[in-house]
């Protein structure tokens, strides 16, 4: 489990755009992260994390998964690569997390090619699924 400052070893984003506070670990094809919503979150409004925050949380879960894979392939000292969202599909958000609530996102790799990763994400608050999404992530070489 990776938390706090160590998250910066996995993803290139920095405050105030960091949207994961914990990365729980990765298998060959799956990764999981979490974020507790705080009122100071840049994507929070009127006590709720907006859609942008949820989708960025999903994107950074994918980025952290890639960060772990990058370290496994290229060594622990490998810095996280810059990455961008290439495409989002079938993104359903049924409700917004409130300040104090914790959301956790599981990503599963469905396809990989060179610097492109296609993933399916599920975001839960407790047992309740609040968002599902397909995301394509590009990474710089």
């Amino acid at each position: 489990m990776i938390q706090g400052e160590a998250i910066k070893e996995l993803i290139p984003q920095r405050e105030p755009v960091m949207m994961i506070d914990t990365f729980y670990g990765a298998t060959a094809t799956e990764g999981k992260s979490g974020l507790t919503v705080t009122s100071s979150n840049v994507f929070c409004e009127n006590g709720k994390l907006r859609e942008m925050g949820i989708i960025e949380h999903i994107a950074q879960t994918s980025a952290a998964f890639n960060g772990v894979k990058n370290k496994q392939a290229n060594g622990e000292d490998s810095a996280p690569k810059l990455g961008y969202i290439g495409e989002i599909k079938k993104c359903q958000i049924t409700r917004l997390p409130k300040v104090g609530e914790r959301m956790e996102t599981q990503v599963v790799v469905t396809a990989e090619a060179l610097n492109v990763t296609l993933m399916e994400a599920t975001t839960n608050i407790g047992a309740e699924t609040i968002a599902t999404c397909q995301i394509k992530l590009f990474e710089e070489e």
């Binding site: 290139p12 755009v17 859609e51 942008m52 810059l82 969202i85 989002i88």
Partner: peptide, 17 residues
């Protein structure tokens, strides 16, 4: 300043926003 340090790029989610 966080996306990314020294390399400002509008996050895709902000474009949606």
């Amino acid at each position: 300043s966080g996306h990314f340090p020294g390399n400002p790029i509008s996050p895709g989610v902000c474009n949606i926003g």
